[in-house]
Design a protein around this nucleic acid. Sequence first.
DNA 1: CTACTTGCAAAACATTTGCATACGA
DNA 2: TCGTATGCAAATGTTTTGCAAGTAG
Lengths: 154, 154
Amino acid sequence: MKPRRCSVSVVATPTIDDILVRLRSAGGRLTEPRRAVIEALVSSADHPTADDLASKVAVSHPTVHKSTVYRTLDALADLSIVDHVHLGHGRAVYHLTHDTDLHLLCEKCGTVAHVTADVLHSSRTAIAEATGFVLEAGHFALPGRCAACSAAEA
Amino acid sequence: MKPRRCSVSVVATPTIDDILVRLRSAGGRLTEPRRAVIEALVSSADHPTADDLASKVAVSHPTVHKSTVYRTLDALADLSIVDHVHLGHGRAVYHLTHDTDLHLLCEKCGTVAHVTADVLHSSRTAIAEATGFVLEAGHFALPGRCAACSAAEA
DNA sequence: CTACTTGCAAAACATTTGCATACGA
DNA sequence: TCGTATGCAAATGTTTTGCAAGTAG
């Protein structure tokens, strides 16, 4: 089951240089591999897996190793520049933190749809009242059936 | 709001034999390894990983292989007797399907709290209206901060 | 110069699978 | 007997890590 793109919200995307500056001011170094990873991430319409990013980077920078992609993503995650979302079964996709969408993963066809985070607002409140737990659903995909698969089953 | 510990809902737990009967009526065989896995699952207060179950089973049945645990869990999942929940980073925990709780995973301390699934009701409706997507959040843990960690941060 | 980064290979980790054997119904 | 189940080892797929060598600042 391969995650496919459904809809993408285009929000003000930080430029590659914006991100590099933030990296730099946190004591990191600006390297070509990192630039390439960030470029791949920023230019992705959909939400790529680490492997997707590695492939994308490999086009222009064939020597960049997959572990470097992981380490770069880690570094960016430490700076809260990127987040990752688990789609289950070990796969995670990465996206820029400014993306406030929730991810809806169809367990049947693998499509990933998006909704704005506020659809969970009332549930967040209910959960907080019941348990004090503060929901941060952005890091995970919410599973279910997309409209098409749901209709196909009924 | 006073933080309180979430209770695990104690619902009528199917007996090991109940489950074995369901397995058999589906054409499966009743074997010692399977009985041991089911026993380990039923007797778990918390939600064990496959590895936890394998260890538990190993106490009384040292020859039972981990792959048998996985295959048994698979067989039980096919019959909708068990479900698994991804806690991120590759680990999944298993529980009996009758457990309708949602799992709330604290990303800070790793605690798993529970709430009944209906706290998501209004969000399910909102998501369904917006996208047609039918949310089935039982298979995933919802991440966030537990009451204690949330309070510690504020 | 020095600390941060990289490529590479290998390890770690959770889960799955091929296959010959064992066993329940 | 016949078709499931099992143990084992080996494969899978993703992510992490130990190191020596490279490089940004």
